[in-house]
Design a protein around this nucleic acid. Structure first.
Length: 854
RNA sequence: GCCCAGGUGGCGGAAUGGUAGACGCGCUGGCUUCAGGUGCCAGUGACUUAACGGUCGUGGAGGUUCGAAUCCUCUCCUGGGCACCA
């Protein structure tokens, strides 16, 4: 008996697939009427090495792709590289390598590693977003959107490092300081390029409904909340005294016009034009604005920070009560990007307003009375009341419910011609400018006479220059001696190229469309895209639930409006998978993190391999370099083979949840691989058929239950539950050792076909050992027969008053009366019914009996 | 601060409102082995009982139901996202 040797078998079968070119995508003509299935996993950033998260993601995709292939679909399953981004520039600064060389070297290394996974990918369609053939087409459609007015420039705030004189990403701001210089970060305004995603806000929300049942509910909900459509009131406060020069009033937006009588102040953003105006000649205001400018731009930082404000000395008149005036404050929690950059504060019914009012001693006046509360005694303490109720203390709104009051308040403001009902979105336009080198150049030329001018189509792509230096911080394109100097396509005068590059989210917002024909002259070949899109199953990390997926949905619509695509939704099905985690280890001596390779378990305690000293075992966290809790996939492949690793990443946790990597877990998967091989190896040499009729039936039943269970599990992304059934099947097989020959081979054939998408190398080896023709990769998915899978007898638990007391056997489909009679006649049940009167007997067919007795 | 998700044995987890703990890991005992490992057999939620059995048990507190891990309300804890990380 030969042991299974993955080191020999796995490369051999990968070579066999390659030789037969089985994973080449078939054209619609070649597919001859087969339905298409486009299976895609989020393409990786080429960091240099694959990690376990990749193994999990791409294995899941491969299971879907291979099972679809077996089920008769024409499959597109491509791979590429999300290759622009900051890490390449960081490597350039730290190690003096060129971002381009670094990136393509990493791609080569990772391609080798991914190919070792035995994925059913059509590598002929591979591309990287940093290929000029790709980003040049991106520039082409970007200019198409520019012509249609979907691209524009405006001022926006960035994190500014005042020492390095560079823009920082939110990630590069650590505790309010630049990660390299350590300087306190400031907000700075820059003119930047934007895409009008807000024009599509309604369509992006409405489209979510069409994805119901095909996308996780939580992702749809997160996107809906992110877009944040709200109906409310936009109106103008008039100044109580002489207006400041150039200002008619302060326009605010509110979703709670019903609480207007509870207003106790007006807040404006620190970068509101009125604030800037007032700062002139008022050092106190100027200083406060400067103070607000400190710190980064991230929402978490702004919203989580301390609330600060300054009274401007100006007052406005309440729109419903001219005798009442409200103080205007500059407040750091008011965002210029949302609504109008100004709010009215109603402390009683908004927590942030309440915190602010308590801090600065402003009035707190409740105007919504909770149900059953007493108007005389109801008061707001440290917690704002945001629940339902009736309006009071509010003049003409008194007695109305909240929604009625909103409508009445809006109507009155419109009557007064002070404003109108409005729909506002939390979603902001997409800022795509990055002051960085390693990205797609924005194909615009700035001309002193003509302004920004699009680069003519025949001059695309605008190629990144290779001769750049990273010895000083900042954007090398800006410093490049010649690259930006060109002529204006409009007037022929000297002009300058835009030196900003595009956000890498732009690169990943359309790559799935490019995969349908990566050689197309246009950005997308219409016929190929029409055949393949939408992506039938998209798989990736839940961390992309909002940004990447929203941008891709937007760009798809924008390109569809341009006639380039015919679908609105790029991803018909979405699955978001959890992360791979691992225990963390820390040395108690120096507080340094230790990698799993540096520790081992001795007598139930984790110790440092070298020193033999005990180590502190920390939390289970996402595998990351900083915590050193990573496991290199190559090491696992080397020890257990690729199939055992594929099996393990799917087996221990539901795929949407985090999975904890453990050495003992992968050993369990390795054992399953060996058990399957041993079973096949043993059966292959059986020549005669044996086994009683009952045993043969039991084996068939087990096999058909397996087909049913695994087919459902794979279709519903319940890989862990599916894999458990393989174990259960093998356990059953062991109890049926007496069955040999053709019946056993047939059962194993089903097993091989079912496990093929998960452990394809092993499946091929078993297929060959049993002497079947061709390769499993070309074999059809097995069919399930419900008659063969049905049980002869069922065990029905009997409950008395909801507590399980006994069980009876009954054939499937036994009638209610028959089951009731058996149950009531059961000795153990009768014992529990002693002294009680049976009131009711509930029989749930083929499931349970519950006797209610008192 | 805001949005979202998840809490079930020693561990990962299973369970169309219907036998809680499938399956795996670990552990215990036995067989195999010079030994270690592998492999094979049996057991394994807690408490209780000589045994049959009984009681409790799905983060916590209430509720709906003949019946709740599952549905509802409140609460605690952990994780993800927050627009320049990809």
């Amino acid at each position: 008996m030969a042991r299974y040797n993955p080191k020999e078998a796995e490369p051999r079968w990968r070579a066999a697939w390659a030789a037969a070119d089985v994973f080449r995508t078939r054209s619609p003509e070649e597919a001859r009427g087969k339905p298409k299935a486009y299976v895609l996993e989020m393409f990786p950033y080429p960091s240099g090495r694959i990690h376990m998260g990749h193994v999990r993601n791409y294995t899941m995709g491969d299971v879907v792709a291979r099972s679809k292939r077996a089920q008769g679909f024409n499959v597109l399953h491509p791979m590429g590289w999300d290759a622009f981004g900051m890490p390449a520039e960081n490597a350039a600064m730290e190690r003096g390598v060129h971002p381009k060389g670094w990136t393509y070297d990493n791609i080569a290394a990772m391609r080798t590693q991914l190919q070792a996974l035995g994925l059913s990918i059509d590598w002929s369609r591979e591309f990287a977003t940093c290929d000029p053939e790709y980003y040049g087409r991106q520039q082409a459609w970007f200019l198409e959107l520019y012509r249609r007015g979907l691209v524009y420039r405006k001022e926006a705030t960035v994190n500014w490092d005042p020492v390095d004189h560079t823009v920082l990403s939110n990630e590069q701001v650590i505790d309010g300081r630049g990660w390299r210089s350590g300087a306190l970060v400031e907000k700075k305004k820059l003119t930047q390029w934007f895409l009008r995603i807000t024009d599509y806000a309604d369509r992006l929300i409405d489209g979510l409904k069409t994805l119901e049942g095909h996308w996780p509910d939580k992702v749809r909900l997160m996107q809906e909340n992110w877009i944040g459509r709200s109906k409310g009131l936009r109106f103008t406060f008039r100044f109580a005294a002489t207006p400041p020069k150039g200002f008619d009033g302060i326009e605010v937006y509110t979703t709670r016009p019903d609480t207007l009588f509870g207003a106790s102040f007006v807040g404006i953003a620190a970068d509101h034009p009125l604030a800037a105006h007032l700062a002139v000649g008022n050092p106190q205001i100027a200083a406060f604005i400067a103070e607000c400018r400190q710190g980064g731009t991230s929402e978490a930082e702004i919203e989580g920070g301390e609330k600060k404000g300054l009274f401007t000395g100006i007052e406005v008149t309440h729109p419903f009560d001219p005798t009442q005036s409200l103080q205007v404050w500059i407040a750091n929690f008011v965002l210029m990007d949302y609504g109008t950059g100004a709010i009215f504060g109603c402390p009683a019914h908004d927590q942030r307003d309440l915190d602010f009012a308590r801090k600065y001693g402003l009035a707190v006046k409740p105007v919504v009375l909770p149900p059953n509360a007493d108007a005389q005694t109801f008061a707001v303490g440290d917690e704002a009341y945001v629940g339902p109720g009736r309006i009071y203390h509010s003049g003409f709104l008194d007695g109305l419910e909240i929604e009625e009051a909103k409508a009445a308040a809006i109507a009155r403001i419109e009557e007064q011609e002070q404003g109108e009902g409005a729909t506002v979105y939390r979603l902001r336009d997409w800022g795509v400018s990055r002051q960085r080198y390693w990205g797609c150049p924005i194909p615009i030329i700035h001309c002193p006479k003509c302004g920004p001018v699009a680069v003519p189509g025949d001059e695309l792509p605008v190629i990144l220059p290779d001769d750049v230096s990273f010895d000083t911080p900042g954007n090398p394109l800006l410093r490049h001696p010649t690259w930006k100097h060109t002529t204006c396509p409009g007037c022929g005068d000297p002009g300058e190229r835009e030196t900003d590059t595009l956000d890498t989210f732009v690169d990943s917002s359309w790559y799935f469309a490019r995969f349908t024909d990566p050689t197309a002259i246009r950005p997308v070949d219409k016929a190929a895209a029409d055949y393949w899109l939408p992506v039938d199953q998209y798989i990736g990390g839940v961390e992309h639930a909002v940004l990447h997926l929203l941008y891709a949905r937007f760009v798809t619509r924008a390109l569809a409006d341009d006639g380039m695509l015919s679908v609105e939704e790029p991803f018909a099905g979405l699955f978001t998978q959890g992360m791979v985690t691992h225990e963390t280890y820390k040395s108690p001596l120096n507080g340094q993190w230790l990698s799993p390779a540096e520790v081992e378990l001795r007598d139930g305690r984790w110790v440092d391999v070298e020193l033999g000293q005990p180590v502190d075992v920390g939390g289970i966290e996402k595998m990351s370099k900083s915590k050193k809790n990573t496991v290199a996939p190559e090491d696992i492949f080397e020890t257990y083979g690729v199939d055992a690793a594929r099996l393990f990443v799917l087996s221990d946790s539901p795929p949407e949840r985090d999975v904890q990597w453990t050495e003992t877990g992968v050993e369990g998967s390795w054992r399953l691989v060996n058990r399957i091989w041993a079973e096949v190896d043993k059966t292959a040499d059986d020549s005669e058929s044996t086994g009683s009729e009952d045993e043969v039936r039991a084996l068939r039943r087990a096999a058909h239950k397996l087909i049913q269970g695994v087919t459902e599990a794979v279709a519903n992304f319940r890989f862990n539950a599916g894999i458990a059934q393989f174990y259960a099947f093998l356990n059953t097989l062991k109890t049926l050792e007496a069955v040999k020959g053709a019946e056993r081979v047939a059962a194993l054939k089903a097993l091989i076909l079912l496990i093929n998408p998960i452990t394809p190398h092993l499946a091929e080896a078993c297929w060959e050992r049993l002497g079947f023709e061709g390769m499993v990769v070309d074999a059809a998915w097995p069919n399930f027969d419900p008659v063969l899978a049905a049980d002869d007898m069922l065990v029905l638990p009997i409950q008395v008053n909801g507590k399980r007391r006994h069980e009876i056997s009954a054939p499937p489909g036994a009638s209610e009366e028959a089951v009731r009679e058996i149950a009531l006649a059961d000795a153990a049940v009768m014992r529990h019914l002693e002294g009680l009167t049976v009131r009711k007997v509930i029989v749930v067919k083929d499931r349970i009996v519950n006797i209610v007795a008192t």
